[in-house]
């Protein structure tokens, strides 16, 4: 049985519009104009237990609306949504007792209290038994290496420390489902790696289903076996990263470091997509021109210091998906 089933979910918002200036404000008092925004426009997917799904899209695409519906704090206009066979918003309290949510931008810990006191309070809020709590807490403390900062008030923690504590806090009640909203935003490189490693371990060892929204494509590449792309309330793509790439373009990139930085590179089967000093990036379709053939031609015609082939970065792919929906 899938962990989450969503079918044809729709949600519209009425956004009040106002003309600028004093006159607009006065007119706004008398008669308001509303614009309808389709935050969700027929969203369907299903997620199996233990999956780690990346959910990406530009700001305002419908990501957080979806997450709010799944979390049971927003009621959709139409469509079906079941999490573990339960309709999330029908019985909020029973539903949220089994999920964990982390917002990268906001902490759920008590600002002026030592971390451990927030944990203790959360235990009571979630009604976790003493033995379960102690086990979960100690395990999380060890996994996230937060033992030394447990007695520090939250306001004195660095962003990376706080995020590790927030992750622990959202898992004290051992939820089977975890939503992570930009968990690496603003973190330094070391903290990012620590957070990613933790999420992977959590998903592998405890079989927790994870839904991750992020703008950091490194998160997606490092963590997600499956990626859903949403824009303007519609799911544009749903599958593995490789599927996602293949669906957009077969293009590969040949990156060439020239001996002479002034040189220009031209080839009938490739376009220059980027140029940084002596480094030239050529995009080509391996079906039109096999990679060895292109390399041979380029090395024959130019003085080359070094070269390598790679896939276009995931940002590029995503940007193209967004652009295609726009046009």
């Amino acid at each position: 049985m899938p962990h989450i089933v969503v079918e044809n979910l729709a949600k519209t918002f009425q956004v009040a519009e106002r003309d600028p200036g004093v006159w607009g404000a006065i007119r706004g008092l008398a008669k308001r104009r509303y614009r309808t925004v389709h935050a969700l426009d027929g969203v369907s997917f299903s997620i199996e237990p233990g999956e780690l799904v990346g959910y990406i899209g530009p700001n305002g695409a419908g990501k957080s609306t979806t997450v709010k519906v799944l979390a049971g704090i927003l009621v959709p206009d139409s469509g079906r949504c079941e999490v573990q066979g339960r309709v999330p918003w029908k019985d909020r309290i029973a539903h949220v007792a089994d999920i964990g949510v982390v917002f990268g931008q906001r902490t759920q810990l008590w600002w002026d209290l030592p971390v451990i006191e927030s944990f203790d309070l959360l235990r009571d809020i979630y009604r976790v038994s003493k033995s379960d709590y102690t086990r979960a807490r100690d395990e999380l403390i060890a996994m996230l290496d937060i033992e030394p900062i447990l007695d520090v008030p939250v306001r004195q923690l660095s962003l990376g420390q706080r995020m590790r504590c927030d992750l622990a806090a959202s898992l004290l009640h051992s939820p089977s489902l975890l939503y992570l909203d930009e968990p690496t935003i603003g973190l330094d490189a070391v903290s990012k790696l620590a957070v990613r490693e933790f999420i992977t371990r959590l998903n592998r060892t405890r079989q927790v289903t994870v839904i991750l929204t992020t703008h950091d494509m490194d998160d997606i590449e490092a963590l997600c076996t499956r990626v859903m792309v949403i824009n303007e309330g519609k799911i544009l793509s749903d599958g593995t990263l490789a599927d996602l790439r293949a669906g957009v373009t077969k293009e590969r990139w040949l990156i060439v470091d020239l001996v002479n930085g002034e040189d220009t590179v031209t080839d009938s089967a490739a376009n220059v997509v980027r140029r940084d000093g002596a480094r030239v990036t050529l995009a080509f379709d391996p079906e039109r021109v096999p990679t060895p053939e292109l390399i041979r031609r380029v090395t024959a015609n130019h003085a080359i210091r070094d070269l390598f082939v790679e896939n276009p970065p995931i940002e590029e792919i995503i940007a193209r998906i967004y652009r295609e929906t726009k046009s």
Binding site: A71, I73, I93, I99, I125
Partner: peptide, 8 residues
């Protein structure tokens, strides 16, 4: 939203 996310 955080208040709504807690089972109380």
């Amino acid at each position: 939203d955080r208040v709504l996310l807690r089972p109380r």
